[in-house]
């Protein structure tokens, strides 16, 4: 691992730790939902760094799938917060 990769992974892990702090602390449900959404975007960043480090392109495929599924999950949670039925 080059120093650049070490620093990059350290920064992303620190960012994820801050997100997890907000997921645990709350204080309301939307706080946790926003933090989980941000965590999903950070995981996309992790996938990119793995693609950078290994030079394999399937990590980017994982990142695309993760971004889409995280989006759908967050929208479902937002609908739940709004208090509406899911098919409206």
């Amino acid at each position: 691992m080059t120093p650049f990769e070490q620093i990059a992974f350290a920064v992303l892990i620190l960012s994820s730790a801050l997100c997890l702090y907000r997921v645990g602390r709350g204080p309301t449900a939307p706080d946790r939902t926003v933090a989980i959404d941000i965590l999903g975007t950070l995981v996309v960043g992790f996938c990119c760094l793995m693609a950078w480090r290994t030079g394999r392109d399937y990590y980017i495929t994982i990142a695309i799938a993760w971004a889409l599924i995280s989006f759908v999950g967050t929208l479902a949670l937002a609908k739940y917060l709004e208090g509406r039925s899911y098919d409206a």
Partner: peptide
């Protein structure tokens, strides 16, 4: 993937904030 993130992430945050306000 960058295009996907750029499109979906603000929409998701908007939906969550709207849900937060209405709840």
């Amino acid at each position: 993937c960058a295009a996907f993130v750029l499109l979906t992430s603000p929409v998701a945050a908007h939906a969550v904030c709207r849900g937060a306000y209405l709840s």
